[in-house]
Design a protein around this nucleic acid. Structure first.
Lengths: 238, 238
DNA sequence: TGTGTTGATCTTGTATGGAAGAAGTTATAT
DNA sequence: ATATAACTTCTTCCATACAAGATCAACACA
């Protein structure tokens, strides 16, 4: 499964840790990062941290301004819309190329177990997000296009972060789980068009949640994506 | 247009230079890279070269094996197929969301000029590839989804490299240009479905070229994507 | 001839030390 | 009081040194 070397380098640790904290909003949009500070937190040198930040910048989750600083990218509505577009395009195309005959029983079983896990009572948010991620990855794999997942996952990162802002909306997670099951059932029984309709509806439900929160709390979104931040010296109790 | 800082750092120089050489097959699939060697060639230190290689590895054009070496990724048919799938999904979705009313005159004009340049006689290959890239980027921008271009461009990189292997097939470039114009005309006149049909046909023409060369020269493709290379000491005239 | 062993020489991964610039603070001059 | 210059402190970028492993050449030895 793993392509390339799977050695868990310190760079990878830093990358995954920072990424998770960005998407989980533990690192707020617009927050200042610092190679030095992060290196100290993780107990390693600047090099692997810096390399992780370069990857995150390439992914669009971090903005680096030379000689000024690195910052958690603010939630850019345009970028979120782009992510939604790419994700929808790829996942829909996956379902479109689906025919019942070629379904891999192992993958089907993995999807079943995933859905069962999603329906467990009292699921905490982080676990659900992990299962959600796995569900969509497996769904894409069902059509034999798992290789395109990394690109979708990158887009999904931007969407999930925006979604986290909206998650205080009182929509229970069970709604999403029901949608997941509906997509799965349609795909399983060869009704590709129905699966597509349900998937599109599902993805847009998520997207509309994001637009809701944007109306409610516009200050969390970037008004000008090209604005350049400035550093400020802040007095802190020593 | 540029998102983020546009300073042309040495890392970016190295990244672009190596990437171009990989896609242009100046660096053969499977060829050993070396941070030290590349750094010396470019006249800079290992650090920016290494950072460029990390990005290229993330993109799938380079494979890094710790303590062993870095290598130009071999042409993996599975990865090429994945790239084709993603590219087709996104570009087709772009055309699908096209309606004549919202076409930006500036972008239309840019496409016109691009096509005119493609039709210039005696075009060399590198120039054509640049124009081809710009054409597809503009086409995606026409539907307001230019933000998804980087993901498509990454996929296109893998396709272009495989295509370079096939380019000795005697298909004249004019065939591609005519297809481009056909797509453009259909999109311009609001016939989105026709544009989609033509785009799909166009993209698959390119893909079938790749499959042709795979049949003819299978040794250029990776037989086992997970194989690990070993270093060899080679005697060289000093 | 065959076999283990040591060392030389590669590789990438990580740590560290400036270099150059940006911005705030302070001192100084008018 | 106000403007201006020097300084302090931060940042990222790049260069360099070291660490640890992988491979091969050479050599000792049976």
């Amino acid at each position: 499964m793993s392509r390339g070397p799977s050695q868990r380098s310190r760079r990878l640790e830093a990358y995954q840790a920072v990424r998770r904290r960005i998407i989980g909003l533990d690192l707020a949009p617009g927050a200042a990062l610092s190679e030095n500070e992060l290196a100290e937190q993780f107990g390693l040198s600047r090099t692997p941290v810096r390399e992780a930040l370069i990857l995150l910048a390439d992914e669009g989750l971090v903005q680096v301004f030379p000689k000024i600083g690195s910052f958690v990218a603010r939630v850019d509505p345009g970028r979120v819309a782009d992510a939604q577009f790419l994700r929808e395009a790829v996942e829909m195309a996956g379902l479109e190329s689906l025919t019942q005959s070629e379904l891999d029983p192992e993958q089907v079983e993995a999807l079943r177990q995933n859905l069962a896990a999603q329906e467990a009572p009292g699921l905490d948010l982080e676990t659900f997000f992990g299962l959600d991620e796995e569900f969509h990855r497996l769904l894409l794999a069902l059509s034999g296009h798992a290789g395109s997942w990394p690109a979708v996952a990158t887009a999904k990162g931007h969407l999930d972060r925006a979604r986290m802002l909206a998650l205080r909306s009182d929509r229970p997670l069970q709604v999403y789980v029901r949608e997941h099951r509906g997509i799965f059932e349609a795909a399983l029984t060869g009704r590709a068009e129905l699966a597509q309709d349900r998937l599109r509806s599902h993805l847009r439900t998520v997207f509309s949640d994001i637009e809701d929160i944007r109306r409610e709390r516009p200050e969390l979104f970037a008004s000008d994506p090209d604005a350049v931040p400035t550093r400020k010296t802040v007095a802190v109790w020593g």
